[in-house]
Amino acid sequence: MDIYDVLLRDFPFLLKGLGVAIVLLVALLMIGFVLGLGICLVQLYGPRSRLVQWPLMLYERIFRGVPIIIMLFIFFYGISGVWDISAFGAAVLAMGLRSAAYQSQIFRSAFQSVPTGQMMAARAMGMSKIKAIRHIVFPQAGRHAIGPWTNEFSSQIKETSLAYVIGVVELTRQAHYIITSTQGNVLTVFAVVALLYFILNRAGNSLLYAFERKLAVPGFEK
């Protein structure tokens, strides 16, 4: 059997690995989105007390300052000592928390790019702070965030492959299995895998760009 037959035969495994990568990606981005937005809102509009702000800052610094591969090891081996966590669970948690740190930054600068006059005008009309954020500031900040968020999406797709090191059977690990079983052919197999990552990346990017265009406000430059 030459490598092409093997690839053809084992292609379903690659697709399965791709599926795992996509689930991991979606899960970590969702955790990152919800937590990141929450952190950003507390940082910008929450109590100024150090008791609240310092832990958030510390969290952000740590998760942005430590290599993801170390985080994966810490979360998997560290947590599995006290609590039975699957490799996939550890990857979602470590990468989701890390993405939250990055996404909070994306959202923070998007919110800060909305001119202060917008909030002022909303408050002057009688909107509460929460209503003003929800109806006036967030819709504008959200539009500004899509571009940088697309970057985060792209880097996270690529980073899902690192979950390989703690044994998550995602696309890269599936590729590795094929390589071990056929002894060699590294280049061909990884070329196919690279293509799969690339397609996923392009597809996601196109979707996000389309979303950005759909929400664009006529005459309104950033």
Partner: peptide, 20 residues
């Protein structure tokens, strides 16, 4: 304050229309 502001219109020098 929110209820009172709703009863007072404010017109700003630089308009501050909701741009979206």
């Amino acid at each position: 304050i929110d209820a009172m502001r709703a009863r007072m219109g404010f017109v700003f020098q630089d308009f501050n229309l909701f741009s979206h």
